[in-house]
Amino acid sequence: MAAGERALGAAGAVAFGIAVIAAATAAVEGLLRIGLLNRYIVPLPSEVLASFPRIVVEENILAPFVVTCKECLYAMLLVAVFGILTGTLLHRFVALRAATETWVAALASAPIALMYPLFLVLFGRSATTVVAMGLIAGLPPAILKTVEGLGGTRRVLINVGRSFNLTAGQMFAKILLPAALPNIFVGLRLGLIFCLINIVGVEFMINFGGLGHVINELAERYDLPGTYAAIGFVILVSILFLILTERIERCLQPGT
């Protein structure tokens, strides 16, 4: 009984949330229509909604979406390779790790995104710049989580490996790596999120490439509903990435 009531409460809360958002949108629509809000600053929500098919058909937003996905994919491949390699290296050499772990953590907290003019000089307005920005944004969490995962392997599992006379290579491949995998994946997931944020951001900043570029173009054309719809599209894509990677993460942890 109590559980059912609570479930109803949860569903009720979700419905309430949706209702409030819908009401707020309707209120904005109303205020715009009676002229209390300026239509040249905020477009009609109905127009924004109507623009979604338009940006898909006329602006062909799926093509830049694919471009952004590709850039993300390349950056993430590099993040995975260099992140796991560096993390393994730092795990293997304790002194090296003690010397550099705080540096990596500091780098993770630094405003890396602001380095884009540097890459712009190095690689020009090109996909390389975009991928490089994605790479340096995604690298720190991948490194830190790899180190954390490998170091967090339970002592007894390592002892099991030693009792079976595992070579160093077998120990890594069959015990340390699988034990660290859930953590490594968390790192890659965080890396992917940072990577996507930075890639779309840089595309917007340098007006090149995929989704960020489209938003910039629409804004420069002063296509208000289109800009809002494109922003909405990017947010949907981000949410999709987030949910997808969460699902994969859950699948990768058998039983737990």
Binding site: G9, A10, A13, V14, F16, G17, V20, I21, Y40, I41, V42, A113, I193, L196, I197, N198, V200, G201, F204, M205, G212, I215, N216, A219, L224, T227, Y228, I231, V234, I235, S238, I239, L242
Partner: peptide
């Protein structure tokens, strides 16, 4: 708990999105 169930998911999903793309909107506002 009610407000959290009603709204927190939106914050959670909006959190990790690129914010700079809102800049054109901010300029208009």
């Amino acid at each position: 708990r009610f407000l959290s169930r009603a709204f927190e998911r939106y914050l959670y999903y909006l959190g990790p999105t690129p914010k700079i793309i809102f800049f054109p909107v901010m300029i208009m506002w």
